[in-house]
Amino acid sequence: MRLLTGFLSGLVFGVGLVISGMSNPAKVLNFLDILGPWDPSLAFVMGGASVTAFIGYRLAWRRPQPVFNPSFAVPTNRRIDAPLLLGAAIFGIGWGIGGFCPGPALTAIPLLAPGTLVFVPAMLIGLFLGTRSREAAARHATA
């Protein structure tokens, strides 16, 4: 059931990305280009997703545990630190260059655009390196 839940959640997420226009970098860049041909559509994506999640999370948390797992795994770290801010800043620059964030880039794979097929492997390499840097910074901070 966990595999099926994972697959169906991924499918619904991906269909949402396609329908909303999030998996189209041209639309994302026009959303970010507030001085150009501004397309505010993606504000509706973020709004619709966040409000739905806000309400749904509170319904889900009324149960003592999730349906197919023994406990909820929710991040507990509340510290706003340098790796968080630096990482977010670097991510934003890459998002502004390519118009892809991780989910839409994965969803766009089967369309086989050369730019997507270059972006995704580079993103995976970056994800490993960035995670290693975060772990190294955490070790340094506690040492």
């Binding site: 059931m1 949402g16 619709g48 749904g56 909820f72």
Partner: peptide
């Protein structure tokens, strides 16, 4: 379309939390 897509993303997010207890 963007609002509908966003709501679907939100539903997927709630599925992962309610069924698996995980962040999407």
């Amino acid at each position: 379309a963007s609002l509908l897509g966003g709501v679907l993303i939100g539903i997927s997010t709630v599925m992962l939390m309610g069924l698996l207890g995980r962040i999407a």
